[in-house]
Design a protein around this nucleic acid. Structure first.
Lengths: 207, 207
DNA sequence: AACATGCAAGAACGTTCGTTCGTGCCGCCG
DNA sequence: CGGCGGCACGAACGAACGTTCTTGCATGTT
């Protein structure tokens, strides 16, 4: 058994019902959107009272920010680990980075959906911090592209936007993936790794 | 002059303030999201009264549906026209389809953002009709991929999901494109056409 | 002249929203 | 033992929401 899709985004935080509230908020925002879900919905899903939410988070916005922070942190850690464990050439590193990213999208599909769709409802430093998180993860891919182009592994003439194109593609997996679909988690990851390397115009074996 | 980006999505419909209301709704939903924008916001942007909106549309949902219908119709028409005017080979057809699609994303950036982000707040037949619109446009790309694979132009081993990957990539352009950015409208379109053909593992000239 | 129709506006209704307040319980530290 | 901070709850507040109601004014048709 390795049913990663049923793992909650936030494990126990050592603070009463905090983890339950965060996971409930993720579910509520994912199902109805940030503005469509109410704090009463979140409380109901978490099995606690409306007013108790404010013992943990000062506002609805901060609650969303905290959910997204957990998602971004875990995503970045997974990608960074995968790249560190990969070989030294850009092709291997890109393949492992994409595989890890797609793996996270599959494991935490709802978190990825909320992360991309609801960030816009945050403002000020909460927003800035999350955008910085996202940019840091994107920069990992950007660096691999640069390395591959410098070493001649990637022959795309449009290196500057390639990382963004690849990440757009894998982010969108969250919008259509279904656990009972045609492809397994691993196949999906491997397939998107090939899409990415092909987009970069890296040499690939054809059958 | 060819400033396509300032063209309103909906031209005069021959029914009083209908076009103004639709364009105002697009602006409001784009800026605040469907649930974040109020009918009062829409009325203010359209320069009319709150209650008058209901002389044109029976509900907020129907208003959103009508906005999205205009966007989808125009997008599909542009892509279909581009493919019809292209050569017979899959490579030319895919290039022109992507160029037309990216062109629309640039020209009607807000409409594309709202179209992908807010469709989820519709239900019933409004939702079904818009999903069918989107699927029809996606099917154009799917057919080109099939043709290219059948004729040996595209050598990707993962043809079934390639169209979706390409469309994810070009849809995301709406999330980051800025008119004063590094690339012109035409360069952006051409670049993404190459990304698409590379992803499909079509033969490409390397410098 | 009488009437229907389409478009416009202001006021109001009932509901839901995010947030606050007051209170109480429980475990820990002095 | 006493106090204090963390966690829990129900009730309430003021604001904002989508929608409806009523009225009024044009225009074009009978």
């Amino acid at each position: 058994m390795n049913d990663r899709s049923s793992v909650l985004l936030v494990a126990d935080t050592g603070r009463g019902n905090e983890a339950a509230i965060l996971n409930a908020a993720l579910a509520a925002f994912g199902a109805q959107g940030f503005n469509g879900a109410s704090m009463r919905d979140v409380a109901k899903r978490a099995g606690t009272s409306l007013s108790n939410l404010y013992n943990y988070f000062p506002s609805k916005s901060h609650l969303l920010a905290e959910v997204l922070r957990h998602a971004n942190t875990e995503l970045e850690a997974r990608v960074r680990r995968a790249v560190a464990d990969a070989g030294d050439d850009a092709t291997s590193r890109m393949r492992e980075a994409v595989r890890a990213y797609v793996g996270f999208v599959v494991d935490q599909q709802l978190a990825m959906l909320v992360s991309t769709a609801e960030v816009r409802y945050l403002q000020g430093e909460d927003r800035a911090r999350l955008v910085a998180d996202r940019d840091r993860t994107q920069a990992i891919f950007g660096a691999i592209v640069e390395q591959g182009v410098a070493h001649g592994e990637f022959r795309t003439p449009h290196a500057a936007d390639a990382a963004r194109a690849i990440l757009s593609m894998v982010n969108a997996v969250a919008t259509w993936y279904r656990p009972d679909g045609r492809l397994s988690r691993g196949q999906l990851a491997e397939q998107h790794a090939r899409y990415a390397l092909a987009l970069l115009e890296a040499p690939l074996p054809h059958v």
